[in-house]
Design a protein around this nucleic acid. Structure first.
Lengths: 241, 241
DNA sequence: CGCCATATTGATCGGGGTCAACGGCTGTGG
DNA sequence: CCACAGCCGTTGACCCCGATCAATATGGCG
């Protein structure tokens, strides 16, 4: 059920004990389903649990007082979408389902107990929130310093790499990217019209194609070059901590 | 020495025990000074300690492979500038002194011991890294969804509020903002030329003035309105955790 | 078959970048 | 004490990337 989360953690730290993993497993509650478009964590709320995304695509977003929205992160299988609400308490942004999703709650009480009794696992949870922050830093760099073409290429590199880590995408294969150009635009901070043009350029240069929800990277090195993508920030390797 | 850090923590959680604060104090090493312009944490390094900024202004930044730079955060007295390097291990960005700074090291060994023996304090350290991430989310929203005028106003609101929290700035008073328009531009993702024009508009509208390094907010409500600033994300209040 | 969401393409607009000139301030050396 | 150099901030002229507006496919689904 939380298999993707477990995979993610053990890839980063193979010395995590079976006891810890068991402890985590038992904190995860029964899954529920939410339909595409639903906002399942409200901005401004004070949730008593965090949410594990079991399957589907979700986004975190801030809504400005005047109604404008900015996507802050995209989430896939096994992402702990709002783990940070455990220490922060108040949600400064919302979480929405981009496709139909299966989610599981993890009570903050259970997380609190983990931090009290299992410091190693607690550090790994801390790490997960910090990887999210590292991704966010690259999003800021992309938004402020990269052109829309570079930005788009970078997002594709990021998503492809993250999907590879959890094993749902192998290099060279196509992968599911069930996002409309409208949704991609919200994530990139550009209009859907410009997303269309930008994807057109990537197609023309034979770097990447997106037909329906079938995404395919034609030239990984080329795409990486355009994006100036360096995966270090995703903390892919198992290192002593 | 880490008085500002202590103040920040106790404001957020008054139930932190004196023992915990003592434990933290004793982990902070003797301060050293660094000159303005020095990069004191290198992108790509694997530091064995984190750095506490005792006084002065510092910035975190990513350097893209082609040399472009983007500022990710501005730091002031009592900020734990790279606490996240403890769980993440590898620095995906650098830290530079914007003014002359006094900094103190805190060894990762000491932090590890805190996480093993003092879960309450450990959660507070986790919280600090998450407040940084919350600020980063607003920076992304500003960069992608706000105009340069709104973005600039938002940064000023943020800095003023953070300076008030640690008690170096009282509402209505002027405060020290020892950053050149070049440095402000790097933080805002705009050119120094445009910073000058933008500050000109804020001055014209009698919202904010910056003369030399003397910053003064003339109309807090007005500035807040332009910025659409909502301080919730800064987690200013003491709440049960 | 008609409906609605999505994608593509063209034409025009505007915010902010770029380039350049100039003035003020500070520090340094004759 | 003045001459000069450098950095910083300001202002003007012009340009370009991506927004905006609009028309036209395309395609799933009742």
């Amino acid at each position: 059920m939380s298999a993707y989360l477990i995979r993610r953690l053990t890839l980063r730290d193979s010395s995590l004990s079976p006891t810890s993993l068991q402890r985590l497993q038992s904190a995860v509650q029964a899954p529920t389903t939410v339909k595409a478009g639903t906002v399942f964590v409200q901005q401004g709320s004070r949730p008593s649990h965090s949410t594990l995304l079991v399957s589907g695509w979700a986004s975190r977003f801030v809504a400005l007082p005047d109604g404008r929205r900015q996507t802050l992160a995209l989430h896939i299988n096994g992402d702990f979408v709002d783990l940070h609400s455990f220490p922060l308490k108040t949600m400064d942004h919302g979480v929405a389902a981009l496709s139909d999703c299966i989610i599981s709650a993890v009570n903050h009480d259970a997380l609190r107990e983990i931090t009290e009794t299992d410091p190693h696992l607690a550090r790994m949870l801390w790490l997960l929130t910090l990887i999210d922050a590292a991704i966010l830093r690259q999003w800021l760099a992309s938004s402020a310093a990269r052109s829309s073409l570079e930005h788009t290429a970078h997002l594709i590199c990021e998503l492809s790499t993250r999907l590879q880590v959890i094993g749902v995408h192998r290099p060279g294969d196509a992968f599911e990217l069930p996002l409309s150009q409208q949704q991609l635009g919200e994530a990139l901070g550009i209009t859907s019209v410009h997303v269309s043009r930008t994807l057109g350029v990537l197609r023309e240069r034979e770097l990447f194609t997106l037909r329906g929800s079938q995404a395919r990277i034609l030239d990984w090195e080329g795409l990486k070059g355009v994006a100036q993508f360096d995966p270090t920030y995703l903390t892919l390797v198992d290192e002593p901590r």
